[in-house]
Design a protein around this nucleic acid. Structure first.
Lengths: 338, 338
DNA sequence: CTGAAAGCGCTTACAG
DNA sequence: CTGAAAGCGCTTACAG
């Protein structure tokens, strides 16, 4: 049970703790000879530094909190995977929190993160002002905060995301150029950001003749998508005067693309034959299984990289007591990519 | 930046640190009056305990390490979600490590876990003796270890899993009773445990006449399932004398069920019309999208519950210096369930 | 029921 | 280049 400590190493090598500690931390003041002596000996006795002591002494742990709504989406999994790998190379470790879109869960997660004296927090918030004042307090008093994905959050902070208006404009525009006349935009209900998406499709239809071109929005409840879809079919039918069918569909999230779309496409009454589909998805297999679909991919890993870089920079600023600048970075979606 | 400490609370209330500390920890020696006084004041000044100090003092942190091969499978996500929720209620927090099936990544993860003085480790190991001696050392010298899912690991420890032989027997037997004659067992290559699965299907076919009944195994490489599937088609065709086609398929993992199966079913040359499918999957939507399939679900959440209980028990034993008993618990799969 | 004191394992100014 | 000493914030025997 007993762990080897710096004290014991010092005693064995007839050095002071200070020297041992400095050697292990590669302090520039120590001679190369002493360093290797200490390091070799430490390795030979299987010395394992006590991070709790380090954290207590320095006031910050080597942990980074990553707070996401849920993990059951490849977007967040990819993001988490990537950022974990990046931080592990810098000797940080990542503590993951899921909020399940509940502000109170989010608040708890932040509390625990603080208790653990995390070095920074990366968060995709529940909604656009969830825990805004707490996050502000943390950012000012405790540790850097970076907001990703849901950049519409009201906190003034460093943010990394994509422009939903722009991405939906691109998708809708592409469908129009491919000849679609009647496009259905499938969104997830209550997740926010839909306003921006709707602006995107509006823009694509700007100046298009109303009698010929048409678009609708379908907002699906994630908790029971199947039932919700059925419930809204009637409305969708009504909206299509003269039995017109949708000849273009845009599914805005991974869940909608992989799970709701296959079902939606079975409703032949409202879906035209040869319908053209653009789905946002980070699932590799979607393309293979549905070769006719166009897949737009969220740049989850690029977002992780930018978050990582931003956090390191903010931590550096904090150490040097420099006031950081808060920027919002928008990354491009990846069209047609794997 | 300054956090409120016990010392400051003590000074403000004119008490000793000891009393404050004990009050916050609900020590039985302290009067109810003092406790509420302290707790209320602590809350009012937004006191946040420093877990690093606690961990240093006690030698153990409040973290539990969960080590899994990868997260991109609903089985592990469900498990992780459940166990995180359970532990958060006991004021533990979970640090997640992904090994990506690499023994050296696994070894690193264990090292970091130890550095963080985790209270326990829950692991689904890379293969049946990956990091066996390190895990043994940890278990003996450092903290409790529980192995889940891949219970064929050689370490003598508490294990929680399912019996692959039995689950495949049940699946194959069901298909046979439904009239299937020619069953294909689709496994994932190199993940281990396939031996047990093959014993299961063998048992189901025991005493069945060879000229009438037939089974084959298809092992798919996860890294490029599509190509691998195509490569093996020739062999599958050959194995079916006289142009016989598979009328029953068992997909043994979630990835195979949700991602490989739809592709496999498109090869009409080898798949009989009206083929009966049993897929193992923790993805809720599979059933909705493929109503004719039978879905067997791994008891991921039950496994999380058992792991949680086992860990608490092992931690309790360790505190009391009792030698724990190591048992292996096998849970039943959930047939036909959501 | 409360307090004074030691110590967990480390880092880091300060001194030489 | 190395050492002696203080202290990070907490818990817990020991004493009363």
């Amino acid at each position: 049970m007993q762990h080897v400590t710096i004290k014991e190493i010092a005693r064995a090598l007839n050095l002071s703790f200070s020297t041992v500690s400095r050697s292990l931390n590669d302090n520039y003041q120590i001679s190369a000879k002493t360093k290797t002596l200490v390091k070799d000996y430490a390795a030979s006795v299987n010395y394992i530094p006590n991070l709790a002591a380090k954290a207590l002494k320095s006031g910050v742990s080597n942990s980074i909190a990553v707070v996401v709504p849920f993990l059951s989406s490849p977007f967040f999994i990819d993001f988490f995977e990537e950022i974990t790998m990046l931080f592990s190379e810098t000797n940080y470790n990542v503590i993951l929190f899921q909020t399940f879109n509940s502000p109170s869960k989010e608040s708890e997660a932040l509390d625990i993160a603080i208790q653990n004296r995390v070095a920074a927090i990366v968060i995709s918030p529940v909604h656009d002002n969830s825990n805004c004042s707490k996050l502000g307090y943390i950012q000012k008093q405790i540790c850097p905060v970076v907001i990703f994905d849901r950049t519409n959050h009201q906190l003034e902070a460093s943010k990394i995301g994509v422009q939903h208006k722009r991405e939906i404009f691109i998708a809708a525009d592409k469908l129009l150029k491919q000849g679609c006349r009647n496009i259905l935009l499938v969104c997830c209900k209550g997740i926010g950001d839909n306003d921006a998406r709707i602006l995107g499709i509006k823009k694509a239809f700007f100046c298009k003749e109303k009698l010929v071109y048409n678009w609708s929005v379908l907002e699906i409840e994630y908790s029971h998508p199947n039932e919700d879809l059925k419930k809204q079919l009637g409305r969708l039918l009504e909206e299509q005067e003269g039995g017109r069918q949708y000849d273009g569909i845009i599914a805005t999230t991974d869940t909608l693309t992989t799970k709701v779309l296959p079902l939606l496409l079975t409703y032949e009454g409202i879906i035209a034959e040869g319908v053209q589909v653009i789905g946002f998805s980070n699932t590799v297999y979607v393309r293979i299984l549905n070769p006719t679909w166009t897949i737009f991919t969220q740049p989850s890993r690029q977002m992780a990289i930018r978050c990582y870089e931003t956090i390191l920079e903010l931590i550096r600023c904090k150490k040097l007591h420099i006031n950081p600048e808060y920027n919002t970075d928008f990354l491009d979606i990846i069209p047609y990519s794997r």
